[in-house]
Amino acid sequence: MSPQSPTGSTRAGRPALDSKRRGRIIAGTLGLLLGVWFSWYTWVNVPFGTQERPGAGVFPLFVGLLMIAVSLLTIAEAWFTDQVSGEINFPKGEKLRTVLLMAVALILLITFYQPLGQYVASVLFMIAALFVLGTRSWVRNVVYGTAIGVGISAFFVELLGVRLPMGLLGPTGLIGGLFW
């Protein structure tokens, strides 16, 4: 452990707060805000009961205060010590592009999961993911994406009988309605 000055520089003059410590201070601050809001909300909106019959607010208020305490601890630990330190390696360049595109694909999958249905949504997601992660070959991506998307969906829906949204292929769906 090396003591640091709150201004963020050591006596040796090198930058004191590396990205991991700065990140933990931000995490602690967000936790602190959550704890303060949560405690306030509980205090105002959740009944506390009586001393003999404590209400639904007692435990959450305790948890809210605890959140404030551990958040302060997180900030203090990152600020004053280097117990957890180092640089955070976020992806850059091509890798950043891949991660962001996959995140967008995942968000689109869950946004359109119900309207499109399990089969269509997962096939489209698989095709998109193969473009992002795999080759640029259209045929290969469409064939593999369809096969894996349909295969996984059929395993859960047909084999295991899990009820999943059918969307376009369901009885009231655009495509399913024509056949049901």
Partner: peptide, 15 residues
């Protein structure tokens, strides 16, 4: 290939 495995696992996670 990871390109097949990872999105497949994501679909299973959503299910």
């Amino acid at each position: 290939p990871k390109s097949l495995l990872m999105p497949g696992i994501m679909v299973i996670a959503v299910i």
